[in-house]
Design a protein around this nucleic acid. Structure first.
Length: 849
DNA sequence: GAGCACTGC
């Protein structure tokens, strides 16, 4: 096969020379330079592979396979002979292989298992700018290996765009070479500030601007980038409404789309076409014939918040590098156009590149992998870019909790070593270890496998599919995993038949991949424990294992009939809508994720997914040291009384509460509650509060000896109580005071009526919570309400930034989030004078209109 | 009135 000489071939001699002088190299070469296919061949031709193979790291499986077969074809050899590839569950390579394309996880495992890398002469890190976690780790480890025992090992970092100064410093001493690309020019435009892009939803802007480009005569097919499936659907609808675009064929394209729908978007089309896509089209998939790119500049980005220990998936602005990558999609076959739906000024304020994964993902698996290969000191490990200390600390804490690391030394335990054999998040490997004792290894292996692939169950299926699901799979309420297991078993029974899977809304391809991972996990488990049998374990055993893996994500339902749950570590969230676990007072969530809600994504909420119902007795059984009972004094806003309670805790989570008949030391309880509620004593536990009081009074006695306060011994509660109860403020006065005044008394009767009218049908909270109603002085005035969780006595009314805020105590009968958007102009007219009058007294300095 | 980008062992 004849072919044009690729630009990177011009560097042939430089490359060889650089590698003879130096063991490290940076190659900056854009799309179309031929670096992925030619550089390995150059090394082979120049004699670098006499001692071993050249390994090329690829971020994607498909790319590894395609590149391998292209190079094999160019060299006229059979795939798997001189040229091969290796990805998970698929290897076409042999002892004769000299050029091997691999994915990142494969090489990471290899370098961790056999650090000397026998038989490897060179490693090329392709597409390194994507900065995947495994790629980063592999490079760092390779550099370490090269320095410690393999000075002959050649390393090259290849990329289209790189933050070169940083990587040069990291690899120093190293040579840097640059090559030309082979793409067509793309004319790139921005919106003008007068277009006010942030005031319009991206789908409107995209349809409008695409319409304009087409009317102006721009040629070729169009690719529109949107952050997710929802925005894609809106864009398609908006395009339908555009006159000039009527003759186009429009397709959605995103990862969760069934394969045939994806193929439809990629296939040639007899009309001009518009593909509306997510980030899949930025790197993973190429669409022929694209000459117009319209970019919303947005993407959903996954992060792990190490402070709260939850994953987030929120719409964010993409970086400049990512925008350039998207732009390049318009110039692959001919000169093209790109329109960015943001202003040039906005562009300049965007980050140069995406944050590397190591800076934004959960590092538990990373830390376990490193520790397992004898890297104990994570601070001296040569990170390409060091992770956040808090993220490392969070990862180590989880590993300690799972029993993988020793509490004091931080060294790997026996359990930890066994866990590291499983290529999966340590939570699941811990469960796989526990499953041996519980006799449910197959179930846990399947559960772990299910989390490693895309979602097995199609989301938002119609009623008929739902009915067939119920009919053929049976009903499941104990765990979302059990529902998935049923679905997978059903698919397996029908040999992953696409038709049967479609009937019940199961992705057949996903089910098939899950089967491979499942068998792999089962194999590893059998290696270490040959007695592992396949049988049906009781549901309880499996659920106990899940509890072991996710004990820090135990959640208790806030109230009957709500989807709101309180979690360990003071977190809270709402159970996923499609969860089968209904009515469970106690559950463990295997997925905790913050997502955007509301039309413009203005609000965020934590969703608890992959839920499993658990029993309270299991907590006592598995974590006896984390369960305890405490006596608590609490203010009950619905009765406005302080009550004494006995609370049962799992760590910091209250499992249930039992009223104590006569609150102990009731008088003091009132006082303490008052202190707590007024925010002067931010405590809720009785004993702790008393201790605080003792400390405070002792301090006071030391500072102000003239008061002649007698010192109080820590156990002298009686003396303390007396001081509090008969102290200067007076017990009676506090006891009789209405602790939580509502704003109602301050309003005119008609205003009260209006509040009454709105509140019962609009407010979103369990009984007794407060709602914050905000009156804005904008034109027209806006009245909106939002949840206020704090019982804030002082802040019933206040002014901030020209807005008047009232806190209103409302009892809410339903659970729905609320936005009051009724016509309130009239209400404002009548109520403002009265509110103003109230406020003038309180805030004399404010200027009132 | 609503919930979900992309990979990899």
């Amino acid at each position: 096969m004849s072919q044009d000489r690729l630009p990177v071939r011009d560097l042939e001699d430089d490359l060889a020379a650089a590698f003879r002088e130096n063991s490290r190299l940076i190659l900056e070469a854009p799309t179309g330079s031929g670096k992925s296919t030619q550089v390995p061949q150059i090394l082979l031709e120049q004699g670098f592979c006499r001692e071993g193979e050249v390994v090329i790291l690829q971020p994607r499986r498909l790319a590894a396979r395609m590149l391998a077969s292209r190079v094999a074809r160019e060299r006229g050899v059979a795939l798997g002979d001189e040229v091969g590839y290796q990805i998970r569950f698929d290897r076409k390579a042999s002892a004769r292989t000299r050029i091997r394309f691999v994915t990142e996880g494969i090489l990471l495992r290899q370098i961790m298992d056999t650090p000397g890398l026998p038989g490897v002469a060179a490693i090329l890190f392709d597409e390194f700018h994507e900065r995947h976690l495994f790629g980063d780790l592999t490079l760092a480890r390779a550099v370490q290996v090269q320095e410690e025992r393999r000075p002959d090992l050649k390393l090259a970092v290849m990329s289209a765009t790189l933050d070169r100064t940083a990587i040069e410093a990291y690899l120093s001493p190293c040579r840097t070479l640059r090559s030309e690309g082979r793409t067509y020019p793309v004319e790139t435009g921005y919106l003008l500030p007068s277009a006010k892009p942030h005031q319009h939803p991206p789908w409107e802007l995209a349809a409008r601007e695409l319409d304009r480009l087409v009317r102006e005569g721009t040629e070729g097919d169009a690719l529109v980038f949107m952050p997710g499936a929802y925005e894609i659907q809106r864009t398609l609808r908006a395009i339908e409404g555009c006159g000039s675009l009527k003759s186009f064929a429009a397709f959605p394209l995103y990862g969760d789309l069934p394969p045939n729908a994806q193929d439809a978007a990629l296939a040639p089309c007899d009309r001009r076409k518009i593909v509306v896509a997510t980030n899949v089209a930025e790197t993973s998939l190429t669409i022929d014939g694209i000459r117009i790119v319209v970019d919303s500049g947005l993407a959903r980005t996954a992060r792990f918040d190490p402070h709260r220990g939850i994953n987030t998936l929120l719409v964010e602005k993409i970086s400049r590098a990512s925008a350039d990558q998207r732009t390049g999609r318009a110039g692959r076959t001919a000169p093209g156009h790109c329109l960015r739906l943001w202003t040039q000024d906005d562009h300049l304020h965007r980050p140069a590149a995406e944050l590397p994964e190591i800076k934004r993902l959960d590092l538990a698996e990373t830390v376990l992998t490193l520790k397992n290969s004898g890297i104990d000191n994570l601070e001296t490990f040569p990170w390409v870019e060091a992770p956040e200390p808090v993220a490392l600390e969070r990862a180590q804490r989880l590993l300690r909790e799972l029993g993988a690391l020793e509490a004091g030394s931080g060294r790997l335990t026996e359990t930890g070593r066994a866990m590291a054999a499983f290529p999966v998040h340590p939570r699941y490997s811990r469960m796989l270890i526990a499953a041996r004792e519980y006799g449910c290894v197959p179930e846990i292996a399947l559960i772990a496998a299910l989390t490693q692939t895309r979602d097995l169950l199609e989301r938002r299926v119609g009623e008929r599919t739902e009915a067939r699901r119920d009919d053929r799979l049976g009903e499941e309420t104990e765990s979302d995993f059990f529902a998935q297991i049923r679905a997978w078993n059903h698919a397996a029974k029908h040999r992953f038949s696409v038709d049967e899977c479609r009937e019940v809304g199961v992705h057949a391809g996903v089910a098939r991949q899950t089967a491979q991972v499942y068998r792999h996990f089962l194999g590893i488990a059998r290696n270490t424990d040959p007695d592992t049998k396949e049988h049906r374990a009781p549901s309880e055993a499996v659920r106990r294992c899940l509890l072991l893996g996710f004990s820090d994500q135990v959640a208790r339902r806030a109230a009957r009939g709500t989807a709101q749950y309180e979690m360990v570590h003071g977190r809270r969230g709402a159970l996923a809508r499609d969860s089968v676990v209904r009515d469970a007072p106690l559950l463990v969530a295997s997925e905790v994720r913050e997502v955007q809600t509301g039309g413009r994504g203005s609000e965020v909420a934590v969703r608890l997914g992959l839920a499993t119902a658990v029993a309270e007795s299991w907590l006592e059984e598995l974590f006896p040291g984390d369960c305890r009972t405490e006596r608590v004094v609490r203010f009950d806003p619905s009765t406005r009384r302080v009550v004494g309670e006995e609370q049962r805790f799992f760590r910091d989570l209250v499992l249930h509460t039992k009223p104590v008949e006569e609150p102990p030391l009731e008088e003091a309880a009132f006082l303490l509650a008052d202190e707590v509620l007024a925010g002067r004593c931010p405590l809720k536990h009785w004993d702790y509060a008393v201790e605080q009081w003792i400390a405070r009074l002792n301090r006071l006695a030391a500072w102000m000896p003239e008061l002649e306060l007698p010192p109080i011994a820590p156990d002298d509660r009686k003396a303390l109580i007396e001081q509090i109860v008969y102290g200067a403020r007076g017990y009676k006065e506090i006891k009789d005071r209405p602790v939580l005044p509502t704003v109602k008394g301050w309003l005119a009767p008609e205003q009260e009526a209006l509040l009454d009218h709105y509140a019962p049908q609009t407010v979103a909270l369990p009984r007794g919570r407060k709602v914050k109603i905000v009156y804005s002085e904008s034109e027209p005035p806006v009245l909106s309400a939002r949840v206020q969780d704090l019982y804030d006595l002082e802040e019933n009314i206040r002014i901030a930034d020209g807005r008047v805020e009232l806190l209103v105590h409302v009892l809410a009968p339903n659970q729905r989030p609320v936005q009051i958007t009724s016509d309130i102009a009239e209400f404002w007219k009548t109520s403002y004078p009265s509110i103003k009058k109230q406020l003038q007294g309180r805030y004399p300095k404010h200027e009132w209109r």
